[in-house]
Structure formats: structure tokens, C-alpha cells
């Protein structure tokens, strides 16, 4: 098998994939099993970076850049901000789960997920003619290819995402804003609290 690989796959590509793949898996394991949320967030950065590398490896340069800027640069930083702001960087007890059967069932479900996804990716489920939006082999650059599709075929979804972002921003402000009157989020929280106190 190894010599098969050696003959068919260029060595730099193979090494890049192996290192990045290991980083992805290690980072993911870190996210899932680190007891400190800060460590989890940092592990996630590793995964995201590795995925960006894999994007480049697959000729998706624009997405790799976006991945680093948006995910590693913005989202994870947001996570860290929240963690610090709330002061919840305590270690979480990872011992016995309070929910009986939750953990074995979770492992089983995850195993099935893994097997099913593999089965899915092996089979050739799609039938009929392939609908090509824009071939990756065209002479223009990757960024330009994506730009063309976004501003032609996917123009309407693109506009929709801009609306979505606006809504998300407004929603976040409404949720987090602290004011004299009760905001929506606070009102709900108060109700939750009252209910838990009743018990």
C-alpha cells in the first residue's frame, strides 16, 4: 500500500496532507476533551488553520484566506472574548456524566455517524447529468471564479446572506444590551429564573 501511494502521490502533497490531517484531528480532540474552555478554543484554532491548509492544498485559495480571517481571526476571538468576559475559564469536570446512558449512546451514535458518512462518500448516489456552475479548470483565478458565481448564479442567496448578517448584528445587540427596561433576553432569563426558583 505504501509503495502504491509512493508511486502515485507526490511526496510534498502527501506530507502536507498527513501533517494537516493530524493537526485537524488533534485539534478536534483538543476541543472535545480539554477541560478548560480556553484550551478548547485554542485547539480549535489549530483545527481551523489545518483546514485552511487543506483548502489551499485543494486549490481553494480564497476560502483558505477567508477561513483564517473569519474563523481563526474573528470567530475564535469572539469565543475567547466571551469566555474571558464571563469568567468561565474554569476546568470542567469530565468524569461521570450526570445523564445515565448519555455517554455510551453518544459514542455509539458517533460511530454510526462515522460509518454512515463513509458509506455515503463511497457510493455514487447522484444520478443524472451533472450541473456545473463554473469549471475549476477555466483560466481565471480562484477568487475570480468564486466572484463570478456569487455575483451571477448565486446573486440572490448572496443578497440574502447580507440581510442575514444585518439581522444577526441587530439581534446580538438586542440580546446583549443592558438597559433599564427589561430587554427580550433578560426578560426570558428572569422567567427562567423564576421558574427554577419555584421548583
Amino acid at each position: 500500500m505504501i509503495d502504491l501511494l509512493a508511486t502515485q502521490i507526490a511526496l510534498p502533497d502527501l506530507i502536507t496532507f498527513l501533517i494537516a490531517g493530524c493537526a485537524v484531528v488533534l485539534g478536534a480532540l483538543g476541543v472535545v476533551f480539554m477541560r478548560n474552555p480556553v484550551h478548547s478554543a485554542l485547539s480549535m484554532i489549530m483545527t481551523l488553520f489545518a483546514i485552511a491548509i487543506l483548502f489551499i492544498e485543494q486549490d481553494a485559495q480564497f476560502l483558505a484566506a477567508v477561513q483564517v480571517i473569519v474563523y481563526a481571526g474573528a470567530i475564535v476571538v469572539l469565543f475567547l472574548f466571551v469566555i474571558m468576559l464571563l469568567g468561565v475559564d474554569k476546568k470542567e469536570y469530565l468524569g461521570k456524566d450526570r445523564l445515565r446512558g448519555q455517554r455510551p449512546l453518544a459514542f455509539l451514535a458517533v460511530l454510526i455517524i462515522f460509518v454512515e458518512i463513509l458509506t455515503l462518500s463511497r457510493g455514487n448516489w447522484a444520478t443524472g447529468a451533472k450541473a456545473t456552475v463554473l469549471s475549476t479548470t477555466s483560466p481565471i483565478t480562484n477568487v475570480e471564479q468564486i466572484a463570478r458565481t456569487i455575483f451571477t448564479t448565486y446573486l440572490l442567496p448572496f443578497e440574502a446572506t447580507s440581510v442575514l448578517l444585518i439581522i444577526a448584528v441587530v439581534g446580538a445587540v438586542v440580546l446583549v444590551r443592558r438597559s433599564e427596561e427589561r430587554t427580550v433576553g433578560e426578560g426570558q432569563a428572569i422567567e427562567l429564573e423564576a421558574e427554577s426558583e419555584m421548583k
Binding site: 475549476t136 471564479q145 448572496f158
Partner: peptide, 30 residues
């Protein structure tokens, strides 16, 4: 050999960003 997949990833990124913002907002409120 189709750029459509990458375009889709672009949209997923946008949605994920929006989701994180709102989700963290909710977490903050709670």
C-alpha cells in the same frame, strides 16, 4: 471540477458567522 462547492462554503461561512454572533449573544444574556 466545479467551483459551485467552494461558493457554497462561502455561504456556510457567512451563516456560521451570523450564528456564532447570535448564539454568543444568547449565551451572554443567559
Amino acid at each position: 471540477g466545479d467551483i459551485g462547492g467552494q461558493t457554497m462554503v462561502f455561504f456556510v461561512l457567512v451563516v456560521a458567522a451570523a450564528e456564532v454572533v447570535v448564539g454568543l449573544g444568547i449565551i451572554m444574556a443567559i
